Amino acid sequence: MIASLRGRVLRVEEEWAVIDVAGVGYQVFVHARTAAALQGERQEVSLHVHTVVREDAISLYGFVNAEELACFRYLLGVERIGPKAALAILSRSEWQVLVEAIVAENYDLLAAVPGIGAKTARRIVLELKGRVDGLAEPGWASVSLPSTGIGERAVEALTALGFSPSDARRAVALELAGPGTTAADPEGGRTIEAVVTGSLRRLGPNARGVGGA
């Protein structure tokens, strides 16, 4: 079983990439965010790999970190969730956001993924809520936000109000992963004021900043 690959990127398409490892090209299925990250990459890349062996094919699924791979495998354990659906879910948002959605029973985030729907979203939460506890305290400081800049400005606004950078980034990431956002419009047409307001609601009335009592 192939567990990881390290090599040069030869080709990237919407759903897969070809990685050259010592002269052998491996086709690896990836989600949209990973495909975008690999586009134009000139250095060697490393991918964590899940291998699926069938009678007629061996399929490789690649992820940029072990936590994302773990989420993928958890999703495969849910009834009627195959590799394609699992990749679509991970394409929606960072793995930290997905784990938070499951723990918080945020069905809307999962149901917004094309092909999932409300019924499947509830099944995912029901089957995984007690199983992802080991991933439930992720490093939110490393979560990437849309390149448009509104997310980072919202984080700055929240930290100026006294919230820790990690809490602020977590709240903004969850807000920007909610219904109404797409890959083409990651803010869902919202202004920075709307993003900050929504993030404050997620932080809750009892949330405290770094200088809170």
Rank of each mutant, 00 (worst) to 15 (best):
residue 143 V to W: 13
residue 66 A to N: 07
residue 80 R to T: 14
residue 163 F to P: 09
residue 114 P to I: 08
residue 63 F to G: 11
residue 169 R to P: 04
residue 147 S to K: 14
residue 46 S to N: 04
residue 66 A to Y: 04
residue 163 F to V: 08
residue 170 R to C: 06
residue 101 A to H: 06
residue 32 A to P: 00
residue 4 S to T: 10
residue 129 K to M: 06
residue 124 I to H: 05
residue 96 Q to E: 15
residue 213 A to P: 15
residue 194 A to I: 01
residue 138 P to F: 09
residue 160 A to N: 07
residue 35 A to W: 01
residue 13 E to H: 09
residue 23 G to R: 03
residue 145 L to K: 01
residue 168 A to L: 05
residue 136 A to S: 15
residue 107 Y to I: 05
residue 87 L to T: 06
residue 72 F to G: 11
residue 136 A to R: 07
residue 184 A to N: 00
residue 196 V to C: 03
residue 48 H to N: 12
residue 103 V to A: 07
residue 7 G to T: 10
residue 154 A to I: 04
residue 78 V to W: 10
residue 193 E to A: 15
residue 122 R to K: 15
residue 47 L to A: 05
residue 59 S to G: 04
residue 210 V to M: 05
residue 135 L to G: 07
residue 135 L to A: 08
residue 70 A to D: 11
residue 1 M to N: 03
residue 113 V to G: 08
residue 55 E to A: 14
residue 60 L to G: 04
residue 196 V to H: 03
residue 64 V to C: 06
residue 167 D to L: 12
residue 79 E to G: 08
residue 91 S to L: 03
residue 127 E to P: 00
residue 36 A to L: 13
residue 180 G to I: 02
residue 45 V to R: 11
residue 49 V to D: 02
residue 25 G to W: 02
residue 4 S to G: 10
residue 186 P to C: 09
residue 213 A to F: 11
residue 67 E to M: 02
residue 54 R to D: 12
residue 42 R to H: 04
residue 141 A to Q: 11
residue 62 G to I: 13
residue 127 E to R: 13
residue 61 Y to V: 05
residue 78 V to Q: 11
residue 31 H to D: 14
residue 16 W to N: 09
residue 138 P to K: 04
residue 138 P to N: 07
residue 61 Y to R: 03
residue 26 Y to L: 08
residue 193 E to S: 12
residue 191 T to L: 06
residue 100 E to N: 12
residue 96 Q to G: 14
residue 13 E to T: 13
residue 206 N to H: 13
residue 8 R to V: 00
residue 157 A to Y: 11
residue 204 G to T: 10
residue 145 L to Y: 12
residue 45 V to S: 10
residue 81 I to T: 09
residue 125 V to G: 06
residue 11 R to K: 13
residue 8 R to D: 10
residue 115 G to H: 07
